[in-house]
């Protein structure tokens, strides 16, 4: 059962990025997403005694975050009149002066599918990253997600460039394998 016990001291390192990606995709605002993740951790801690151990820790945290996202949308829509659909002329874009009808979503557009697929892809990648050894995962994230320069990462992690490239190589190879199993 050791596998399904809670370890809140590791939560931030293990799940923060995963939860953050999930939240950003749903609320579209980084600061808000950050708050929701933090609240999720607090709520998880408070209800830790209700954790029955029949789900993995991360699944359990995600289910809390889901509630938080729903609550957020409830809250911003609770005041009367806020629920109504508002369509305004956008003032800054080139669509200014176009008829409102021209701004309706194209029903034949496949964009929605792509957005959803990419969102799932993001979570699949984060999932695979979280299976890497911690230092490798950190190096890969700094390089790929934050786009940091090789020198900066080396300074921060206290390694030399060839170490870094070996870590990146291992991380990328592992990720290719993991995504091969879980995505394609």
């Amino acid at each position: 059962m050791a596998e399904n016990e809670l370890h809140p001291e590791n939560w931030v390192d293990l799940y923060a990025d995963y939860l953050f990606n999930y939240a950003v995709a749903r609320v579209g605002d980084a600061d808000l997403a950050k708050d929701l993740v933090q609240e999720t951790f607090f709520a998880g801690l408070n209800s830790a005694k209700n954790f029955k151990g029949d789900a993995a820790e991360r699944t359990w945290l995600i289910s809390i975050l889901k509630r938080k996202v729903i609550d957020h949308y409830r809250k911003i829509n609770s005041k009367k009149g806020k629920a109504e659909v508002r369509i305004n002329y956008s003032e800054d874009s080139e669509a200014e002066g176009d008829w409102l009808e021209q701004q309706v979503a194209d029903p034949f557009s496949k964009d929605g599918d792509h957005i959803m697929e990419n969102e799932e892809l993001g979570l699949a990648i984060q999932d695979c990253i979280s299976k890497l050894p911690q230092k490798q995962a950190l190096a890969f994230k700094m390089k790929t997600i934050q786009g940091m320069g090789t020198e900066d990462i080396c300074n921060e992690l206290g390694i030399n460039p060839s170490n870094l490239w070996v870590m990146i190589h291992r991380a990328r190879t592992a990720l290719m394998g993991c995504l091969n199993d879980n995505w394609f």
């Binding site: 923060a16 990025d17 950050k34 993740v37 993001g122 790929t144």
Partner: peptide, 8 residues
Amino acid sequence: DRAGLTML
């Protein structure tokens, strides 16, 4: 790139 990954 496509997945638009973010991190804290």
